[in-house]
């Protein structure tokens, strides 16, 4: 707990933390204490090949931050840094500072197990486990030592949160793979929500779904923002316009991605400072 504002709050109580975060926002609107993530001088390389260079970004609490930009500019890599999925990639080197509420998550001492509970992730392709709907939600909960008698309640709550409860309550013990693509994606969101994370990272969550299912998921993400900080990578600028509070534009120069512009959605879309951004949001490039 590096941030002095948070030292008084119980570290395990997410709700308390969030209220704290809000209070900080009203008291010091200019201060950075409302930032969930602060990323300074982040560099990522796969072996000798740099993927991200000098990324600086702050992610505001309980806002939707959209990450946009052309393919191959490191957007997904960036997301994976935030919950250290980059650890899984052999030869991937991450340097710089990434602080989650003041704590450096890149330090060796930081427990990834805790990090991944605090920072959930939903992928492009729905990826439920080949287990029953119930076990899909229960397995991570058990892994995080949630008491057995609480699990059923959390499962119902999480499924209600994603609007799936009424659709699946009678077949919780059937395979999750029998659900439709959109339902599977909502199940994956419920699975992430069940762990009560502070942040959820979405990596193009709608692009593998049909438009209708995609818009259901999009609405869902918008509702989540009331409780959770959302980072979403999207290729769909219209989607970013619809849901994002803040936007970060990634671009690649010399094969390396970096942030060329970030700010509130209104600023980035209406009065971009960079020419590249202006052309990109106007649909001229990328």
């Amino acid at each position: 707990m590096g941030d002095p504002k948070l030292q008084t709050s119980a570290p395990d109580d997410d709700i308390a933390k969030m209220t704290q975060c809000d209070a900080a926002l009203t008291e010091h609107p200019a201060a950075h204490s409302s930032d969930v993530f602060r990323i300074d001088g982040l560099n990522v390389a796969y072996g000798n090949r740099p993927a991200l260079r000098d990324v600086n970004l702050s992610v505001r609490c309980q806002r939707i931050t959209a990450i946009v930009g052309p393919s191959g500019c490191g957007k997904s890599t960036f997301l994976c840094v935030l919950n250290r999925l980059t650890d899984l990639i052999p030869g991937c080197q991450v340097s710089g500072r990434v602080r989650l509420e003041g704590e450096d998550i890149l330090s060796r001492e930081y427990d990834v197990f805790v990090l991944r509970r605090r920072v959930g992730m939903v992928f492009q392709k729905p990826n439920p486990f080949a287990l029953s709907i119930r076990r899909n939600l229960a397995l991570p909960l058990k892994e995080h030592r949630v008491a057995a008698n609480e699990i059923d309640g959390i499962i119902e709550l999480s499924l209600r949160d994603v609007g799936l409860w009424d659709e699946v309550k009678d077949r919780l013990d059937q395979s999750a793979l029998e659900l439709s693509g959109g339902q599977q994606q909502r199940l994956c969101i419920a699975r992430a929500l069940a762990l009560q994370p502070e942040v959820i990272l979405f990596d193009e969550p709608c692009s593998a779904l049909d438009p209708l299912a995609g818009s259901v998921v999009e609405d869902l993400i918008r509702e989540l923002q009331e409780r959770i900080t959302v980072l979403i990578v999207t290729h769909n600028l219209a989607q970013a316009r619809r849901i994002a509070d803040d936007v970060a534009v990634f671009w690649h120069g010399d094969g390396t991605g970096t942030v060329i512009e970030c700010g509130s959605a209104a600023d980035v879309f209406e009065s971009p400072t960079s020419e590249i951004t202006a052309a990109y949001v106007a649909g001229a490039r990328g």
Partner: peptide, 25 residues
């Protein structure tokens, strides 16, 4: 591979990934 990625993203440990997810598959 997605299975390992999604399990890791949920903070599921190696033991459970191996015995509860990969081996049954």
């Amino acid at each position: 591979n997605e299975l390992y990625r999604s399990a890791a993203a949920l903070g599921i440990g190696r033991g459970a990934v191996v015995w509860k997810l990969a081996v049954p598959l």
